[in-house]
């Protein structure tokens, strides 16, 4: 799980072009949207692409994204659950 979290942090930084932010700066439990990283609606869509491209997971309803993309840990939980299924 912790490996996946570290991997995800790096992937998020790369996919969203967060140049000034390093993996250590991201807390796995902190909200990704709102104050924290300054992500916006395009970033939310970009995270959907990340899950599909890197993990083969398709989010059909963008509304589900809110829960899944709450934090790095919720993303990791989602991936672990669905990759096993």
């Amino acid at each position: 799980m912790e490996d996946l979290i570290e991997k995800l942090k790096k992937e998020v930084i790369e996919q969203l072009n967060l140049e000034d932010i390093s993996a250590e700066d991201i807390d796995a439990d902190s909200p990704l949207f709102g104050e924290g990283l300054g992500l916006d609606s395009i970033d939310a869509l970009e995270l959907i692409v990340l899950l599909e491209k890197n993990y083969g997971l398709k989010i059909e309803d963008p509304k589900d994204g809110k829960k899944i993309f709450h934090s790095i840990r919720t993303m990791a939980d989602y991936i672990t659950e669905y990759q096993r299924a």
Binding site: L16, N17, I42, D43, L45, E46, V49, E52, K53
Partner: peptide
């Protein structure tokens, strides 16, 4: 086939 919204925009 992974079109990216942040590129397309």
């Amino acid at each position: 086939y992974f079109p990216s919204p942040s590129v397309f925009v």
